[in-house]
Amino acid sequence: MGAVTYPHPDVVKELNDNFVPVKIESAKAPELARRMNARWLPGLIVAGADERPAHTQIGFLPPEDFILELHFGRAIVAMSRKLYDEAHRLFAEIAARVEAERAPEACYWWGISAYRQSKNFADCQEHWARIVARWPESLWTRKVSYALDHRA
């Protein structure tokens, strides 16, 4: 990460503009590593100011993938803070990258976030129906199929 990803100008901008970046040697903070559920290094963790981990990755990620994962973490934190416009913008951005592995999961959470905002489960189902259409072979399609098959 230190040789390839962190020096990348887009990564520098993303972390400096949108996060509080902190680096800690795991062995010197074992309690923190446990709370963040870090089971391998490097641990790449997005957390809110409430210290709850929102999105955890391990291992090397190239810059483009890393930025997408950071956006996903930001979206989860924004949803948790009820900043739904920001959350939906980020989820939509990830879901639009159809080939990205995180895209169907982003669409899944977009549905949950829409439901949390409106309290109308039809809003969730609308997003989940897109998962079935765009990623029919994915685990996420199997996750949402029950809810879509038993619509009121």
């Binding site: 990460m1 230190g2 962190y6 990564v11 520098v12 972390l15 400096n16 949108n18 996060f19 509080v20 970046p21 902190v22 680096k23 800690i24 040697e25 795991s26 062995a27 903070a29 923190l32 590593a33 963040m36 870090a38 290094l41 490097p42 641990g43 790449l44 963790i45 997005v46 957390a47 809110g48 100011a49 210290e51 929102a54 950071l70 973490g73 930001r74 934190v77």
Partner: peptide, 30 residues
């Protein structure tokens, strides 16, 4: 250059003040 912090408690405080999430890089000894 990334403006890394190295103290968790200070990072939490700054996250609360700035409304930005924390990115934590847990690493092995360098």
């Amino acid at each position: 250059m990334i403006e890394w912090m190295e103290n968790w408690d200070e990072a939490v405080k700054r996250a609360g003040e700035s409304s930005r999430p924390i990115f934590l890089f847990l690493h092995s000894p360098s």
